[in-house]
């Protein structure tokens, strides 16, 4: 009976895990072997550093990341963590990165709005003062905040990588309005914009963001070839770190917790067997 119950439970979980059947083709999702996959996965510091550079030099022009502070870059697991500086606010590299960026402030003497170099305690400044300005500068589409984007999209970093490398020439027969770009990994249903064979609707959707990356657009300090694929990979990894900065602590803590619980459970099992050994039941 117990076995039957487990089988049924497994069946239920299999149901829950299966993707929804869609009438139109599903967007392309490429899976990447990330360094942070699996229970022992760790962030690749060099990759996060490259990813930060891509974000700073490309994405930050339009996308805010309002939940991150410069100090986060120097925290354990972060791209510029240095074990010498337990307090990330003292990390000189993080300080210099922050100093390069101007943030808004109020002059405490005059009350005037001013700009000053950022400190590690400052949040990443947003490129637009408010949502309306962001929309007005981007053809009516609000560039989403990237702080937790890697958790806010199904597929996470795989999706971000797929989207950034998913731009293709518009297929003949697909109507794409001005200011929109065809992307095989964007979610959507192109059936209504498709004039070709009804059974061959192209996968993907349209997106208002023009292809942001191009070969050589960012120069990597570690000499990695700066291809679109590499940039997309690195920035997706960086965004995953940004969304889940405590991942390494979590998995480390988890290992200890699992081992402890396993020992605890085994001990209890033997204790249980011993106590019950003489009871007919």
């Amino acid at each position: 009976m117990l076995r039957k119950g487990i089988a049924l439970a497994a069946l239920g979980l299999a149901f829950l895990g299966s993707p929804a059947l869609a009438a139109h083709p599903t967007p392309v999702l490429k899976t990447v072997a990330w360094s942070f996959d699996g229970p022992f996965g760790k962030f690749d510091t060099a990759q996060l550093q490259r990813g930060y550079k891509v974000y700073r030099e490309v994405c930050a022009a339009c996308h805010a990341m309002s939940m991150l502070s410069f100090r986060n870059l120097g925290e354990p697991g972060g791209p510029f963590y240095d074990p010498k500086y337990k307090n990330p606010n003292d990390n000189p590299y993080v300080k210099s990165l922050a100093k390069d960026i101007q943030v808004n402030d109020i002059d405490s003497d005059t009350g005037d709005a001013i700009q000053r170099p950022a400190t590690p305690a400052d949040r990443f400044p947003s490129p637009f003062p408010n949502e309306a300005a962001a929309k007005a500068s981007n053809g009516g589409a609000m560039p989403p905040d990237l702080s937790v984007i890697a958790k806010g999209r199904t597929g996470g970093p795989d999706y971000l990588y797929s989207l950034l490398t998913g731009y293709r020439a518009t297929p003949a027969g697909l109507t794409v309005s001005a200011g929109q770009y065809y992307n095989v990994s964007m979610s959507g249903d192109l059936t209504s914009a498709w004039t070709g064979d009804h059974h061959k609707v192209p996968p993907g959707g349209v997106i208002a963001m023009p292809p942001p990356l191009e070969d050589g657009k960012v120069t990597f300090d570690d000499g990695k070839p700066s291809t679109v694929d590499q940039q997309a990979r690195d920035v997706a990894a960086f965004l995953y770190w940004a969304a889940e900065p405590k991942m390494m602590q979590r998995k480390q803590f988890g290992l200890g917790a699992m081992v402890y619980l396993l020992i605890f459970t085994v001990l209890l099992y033997f204790s249980y067997r011993r106590i019950w050994r003489n009871v007919a039941h």
């Binding site: 229970p39 979590r250 998995k251 803590f253 988890g254 290992l255 917790a257 699992m258 619980l261 396993l262 605890f264 459970t265 209890l268 099992y269 204790s271 249980y272 106590i275 019950w276």
Partner: peptide, 20 residues
Amino acid sequence: VKDGFAIGVFLLLYASFVFY
């Protein structure tokens, strides 16, 4: 002790979600 053992097994499942 029997409930304790079952709790241990259940916590393992719970922890695998929380941590991984």
